[in-house]
Amino acid sequence: MSDNQSPLYGVMAAFDSPDSLIFASKSVVKAGYCKFDTYTPFPVHGIEKAMNLKPSPLPWLVLCGGLFGASAGFGLQTWVSIKGYALVISGKPLFSYQAFVPVTFELMILFSAFAAVFGMFAINKLPQFYHPVFTQKCFESVTTDGFFLMIECADPQFDLAAVHQLLEKQGGFNIVDVRDEG
């Protein structure tokens, strides 16, 4: 399937354990690469530190979602009770903020959850039906026992020979050039 005319996407290597993957990630960071990714069958603790990843912006998205939900819930109830349908209920003032708390609270939770779930999808660029790594037969083991690391050629200091050498030195095997056939 591999077609040499397709543009190069990156160089991928397999590793035999989470520990060697973490070790390799550290060396790749040390060598100055920033555009690379790792692929594992399960979450590997400590990999985000080894890859020198920035903290996720997701908490801020959730905070915004929560603030939006709370203010929307409180605002809607205020408008409905005071202007939209100004009904006196059990002799209480129209602006009975105590009664608004449960709905405000629930909408805050709802919108925080929306922000968390959909924000997570967006940050992870999901759903993704095609990725250049899918062209590699050996990559199928990523769902069982394969640990992969790929340095992408979008990296400013990408050099094919140097990358091959680095991955080999770190104990990577099945080193392949991944081409984007999409």
Binding site: S90, G91, Q98, A99, V101, P102
Partner: peptide, 9 residues
């Protein structure tokens, strides 16, 4: 605790 008491009055 407050809410139920406030509501029932």
């Amino acid at each position: 605790q407050y809410f139920l008491i406030w509501y029932a009055n």
